[in-house]
Amino acid sequence: MKRLFIACALWLPLAAHGALNVFACEPEWAALAKAIGGPSAQVYAATTALQDPHRIEARPSLIAQMRRADLVVCSGAGLEAGWLPVLLREAGNGKVQPGRPGYVEATRFVALLEKPASLDRAQGDVHAAGNPHIHTDPRNIARVGTVLAARMAELDPAQAAVYQAQWQSFSARWNEAIVRWQQRAQPLKNLPVAVQHKSFSYLLAWLGMREVATLEPQPGVEPSVGHLARVAAQLQATPARAVLRAAYQSPRPADWLAARAGIPALALPFTVGGNARAPDLFGLFDDTLDQLLKAAP
C-alpha cells in the first residue's frame, strides 16, 4: 500500500504536466484563459494586438496549434470568418469543432450591439450577428470568464477546483477594477469621439460616451481622402474631442483627421499587448482610460 502511495505521488507531477492546451483567437481571450488556468493551462494566442483579427492568414503554424488544442476560444460573430473555418477544417481535431465543449464563441454569451437591420454587402463587410468587438467592455470579459472557467473545469476535471479558485480570485479583483474604472471615467460621460472602425462600440456604450463619426465609409472599407474630408466637415457641425483607433490600424486616416480638426488622435491598445502599458487585461483598461481622460474637458 505504501509503495502504491509513493508511486502515485511520483506520478502526480507527470499528470499535472499534461496541461490543458488552450487556443485563443485573440490576445484578450488568451489573457483571460491564462488568468483562469495559471500554470495548469498552456495558452496559445493566435493573433497579436498589432494584427487585424479580420484579416489573418490561415498559416501552417496556426493549423499545427489548432491540432494540439483541447479548447478553442474565439470572439465569433463572423470576426474570424476568413481564417478560423480553414484551421478547424485542416487541423483534424474533433474536440474543438463547433458544438463540442472544446469550442467557445465569446459573442454567444453576451448581448451584441449593432445588429444590422438588413443584410446587404453594399453596406460593407457587415457582421450579420452584430458587432463582434465585445471585449472593450470589461463586464463582457467577466461574463465570458465565467463560461471559460466552467468549460476549462469541464474539460480538465482534475484541475476543476484550481480553475474555479483562480477565476474567483481574478473575478473579485476584476469587479473591483470595474468599479474603480467607472468612477475614474465619470468625466467621460457624453464625451463625443470619432472612431476609425467600429472597434470601440462596447467601450463607448459602457462609459456613456458618444460616437459622432466613423472614419471608414463602410465597415472594413479603407477611408478615402474624399470621405475623410466629408468627415472633417461633419466634425465642424458636431465636434468630437478625440479620434480613436486600435493599435493595429493604420495611423494615417486618424492622424490626418485629428490634425485637420485640431483634436488628439488616440491609439488605444484595443487588446492586451496593444502597447507597453497594456501587458495584461488590467493594464488594457487602465491605459485606455488614461488616454481617454486626457481628451476629456
Binding site: A77, A81, E105, R108, F109, V110, A128, A129, T146, S171
Partner: peptide, 19 residues
C-alpha cells in the same frame, strides 16, 4: 448579482450566423 454570475455561466444567447 455576483453570486448569480458565479454560480451559473450565462446561457448561449445569439445563434451563430454559420449555425
Amino acid at each position: 448579482a455576483e453570486t448569480q454570475t458565479a454560480a451559473a455561466p450565462p446561457a448561449e444567447t445569439t445563434p451563430a450566423s454559420t449555425a
